[in-house]
Design a protein around this nucleic acid. Structure first.
Lengths: 375, 375
DNA sequence: TGTGTCTAAGTTATCGTTTACTTTATGCGA
DNA sequence: TCGCATAAAGTAAACGATAACTTAGACACA
């Protein structure tokens, strides 16, 4: 049984099995083997069985490089995120990976570290590798590098961050709805002077700001400029420390704000620290809402009310769209998927038993903590 | 200037530039182009310049598939982790990615979801793609699937989790030192009855358990079985909830433990919740030490003392080892890198001002919070 | 002037598949 | 028995790069 196999090994030592080897073993041509592998119909039943059997025996694995060379498809999806460590992007990566796995695709992940120039290089690398489709949460300020992708005819999908005037595939949460939801919740909880700590000049931050303004406008309130503070833009001081600093300033205004809608959870954590340091209570004196619903929000000094951004769903939708794009014969026109955010109410805004959350919201207990990873 | 380029485009529409195109443009052979690209010395200065100029103009990008086919190298590193969302593995992925980027390598990341069978499939996929080297934080119980990798002659590196009796490349923290360090710290803080909530049957959990026992033994204390509790093994209840349950049981023993060394941070978070729920104080009644130093440990209800596992350093070392393996001519004998853990003292163990941390430890303020990611 | 060395190229074969045709064998109806 | 459709294979030529030789010319030196 192993006769011909042993022969092969005499000739080629420690080299992966090729179609040619199986073909010679069975007295067939490589084309026949190739056809069996891809399920062509013009192969006899018996031949097919013999080939499949031999493939199993020899642990045959097709050579992706050879296949990619001739078909022009690499069976690879490229993902570019600003920061792999951020749970939001990690979730997305995981969801994409899970979704495409079954279709024979693998995921090449790169991190741009929020650096537009590095991101451009990474995209070039992925294009050189001829990934079949790109998924990008971009840190760019301009649309220039997307033009390059279009030149190469590689389909791409933007996630999370959108670009005005760029008709591209997009999957992300509706950021204006996020801003509306967070601010409205504070209003419902009885907050009168609601501040906003806003993020950088990205579509996400701008959208949330817009939502914040609209929520106030709906109450007939004109947003006061001194209650809208930005956090720093440089890589390091824009999270918790940025929230801390901004909140310190906010607390110096008179009258003090009694609610803060924060651009994201780290900022909210900084805000809460500043509030507690100032000897104030959360949520009695100042209520705080974050965005992102990081899975440890439940275990903070004060459990943080936050707006969930559906990271897993973003990943899944992006993956499905990606698969449809690689299978499309013609270039299809860009599709935009806006997902609805979800409010998760916790202690940082729950001012009274009377004020129950309403509308599309969700109370939470320990259940979310379940998927806390182990090691 | 663009004459020949336009000609080319007449013939080949929307196809990436090849060496052949540049060669024809310049009246050279493809081999010359190839040599220029790889910096061969047998190319004239002027020719080299002309070629490089044209490459720039045409945005030439070498075809990885073709290159991989003939060289047998894919310029790709495969990474398999149990859970991408876990910051520990995300950190490692990020560090590896950063380290190999400069050498022209890309990273294919897959998650096994702690499922040995899925992990095996992922490894097969990566082998089929002919990754040049594999980095694996394995969820296996047996060494079987590593044999498959060895058959294929693909070098591989285990990280984080080791396998007894398997002589393989390994990079990870010294888990016995982790156990020693955590337990010794509790002893120094004056704890007398120190419990341990242990993890599953992995090398990491067993090593930490061993360190815990040795630290007690060094004090002449015999570890009491009722103070060593395991957390559940199934995917979901092993983190925070597992720590909570285990701690509830521990608090029912008399006399109560006054210090708990926890397998990881989520478990420690569960432990702290149970302690607070029981109306006890941290650290006055019960001190708690975690492992992992998740970057939000600082913002918990009680800031958690934790043992840092050097995830970034593990990633970096693994990457360097990986690069050396792919460049090695012969198979080299396995190398094992054990990194030293680092104790980060926070409120959950700081019982008195008098009891200052000593030895290789580190007090911490806000500085760590710096890299909190934004979105 | 012939030999040898060096430089700067070019030739040819090859990597492992797939694609687009061809060929061969078989059966069946007229 | 011929012709023709159909089934089940096989042939040859790519795909884009690289490895291992080979060649052409310039130059030096005996």
């Amino acid at each position: 049984m192993l006769g011909s196999n042993q022969e092969r090994q005499k000739v080629r030592k420690n080299t992966p099995v090729r179609m040619k080897d199986i073909a010679q073993d069975l007295g067939l041509s490589t084309v026949t083997i190739s056809k069996v592998l891809r399920g062509h119909s013009d192969i006899g039943d018996e031949t097919r069985k013999r080939v499949l059997k031999r493939m199993e025996e020899l642990h045959y694995q097709p050579n992706f490089a050879a296949r990619a060379l001739i078909t022009g498809r690499s069976w690879t999806v490229g993902l570019v995120v600003p920061d792999l460590i951020h749970p939001f992007y990690a979730q997305i990566a995981k969801a994409i990976s899970a979704e495409i796995r079954g279709q024979g695709y693998s995921l090449i992940i790169t991190s741009s570290e929020e650096d537009p120039e590095l991101e451009r290089q990474e995209i070039e690398q992925l294009l050189a590798r001829r990934v079949d489709v790109l998924v990008i949460a971009s840190a760019q300020w301009t649309v220039e590098s997307f033009r390059r992708i279009e030149e190469q005819r590689t389909p791409y999908i933007l996630i999370d961050r959108q670009f005005a005037g760029l008709p591209a595939n997009f999957v992300g949460v509706d950021d204006e709805a996020v801003g509306l939801m967070g601010t409205n919740h504070l209003i419902e909880q009885g907050c009168r002077r609601i501040a906003h700590i806003r993020g950088p000049q990205t579509s996400t931050a701008l959208g949330r700001l817009e939502g914040y303004k609209r929520a106030l406008a709906a109450q007939g309130v004109v947003p006061r400029p001194e209650l809208i503070l930005p956090i720093g833009l440089s890589g390091d001081d824009c999270g918790e420390p940025g929230g801390y600093e901004a909140t310190r300033k906010l607390l110096q205004t008179t009258p003090q704000p009694d609610g803060i809608f924060c651009y994201n959870d780290p900022v909210a954590m900084g805000a809460m620290r500043a509030i507690l340091d100032a000897g104030l209570r959360i949520p009695e004196d100042v209520a705080v809402v974050g965005c992102g619903n990081l899975h440890y929000s439940n275990f903070l000094r004060v459990a943080l009310t936050s707006i969930d951004q559906q990271s897993a769903e973003i990943g899944k939708q992006a993956a499905l769209l990606a698969l449809s794009l690689v299978n499309a014969k013609e270039t299809v026109r860009p599709s935009v998927k806006l997902l609805s955010p979800e409010l998760i109410v916790r202690a940082s805004t729950l001012r009274s038993k009377a004020a129950r959350p309403q509308g599309k919201t969700k109370r939470t207990g320990q259940s979310e903590a379940k998927r806390t990873a182990r090691r």
